[in-house]
């Protein structure tokens, strides 16, 4: 389905995750963050960039892996993206929700 985010029409799935990363840009991230009641600081951007890099390298993401990444520890990850950080952060980063579970 299509959704208008930051004045642009982008393709999203039923949970609101972008289905085409090429359509992502910073203004979209800001608006998705606002929907989750987060205002993005430089620290947020570091984490988002890390997640996008891992996605491009096809590394499956998990809370454990992020905690060991050296970029952010789990505690801070929760402070930056409260409640369900991995789900929230990946949505803002414009990458798929991790299927870390079987």
């Amino acid at each position: 389905m299509e959704k208008i985010i930051a004045g642009k029409s982008v393709a999203v799935n039923e949970e609101g995750y972008l289905t085409d990363f090429k359509q992502w840009d910073e203004s979209i991230a800001k608006e998705l963050a606002a929907e989750a009641e987060i205002s993005l600081t430089p620290r947020h951007w570091e984490v988002l960039t890390y997640l996008q890099t891992e996605f491009k390298n096809e590394v499956p993401l998990s809370i454990r892996k992020i905690g060991k990444s050296g970029v952010v520890d789990i505690k801070e990850f929760y402070q930056l993206f409260p409640k369900a950080p991995l789900k929230t952060a990946t949505k803002i980063a414009g990458i798929p929700k991790p299927a870390s579970c079987i």
């Binding site: 998990s62 809370i63 454990r64 870390s100 579970c101 079987i102």
Partner: peptide, 8 residues
């Protein structure tokens, strides 16, 4: 605790 686990 965390996934994956045996026999989910």
């Amino acid at each position: 605790t965390e996934m994956p686990i045996k026999c989910p």
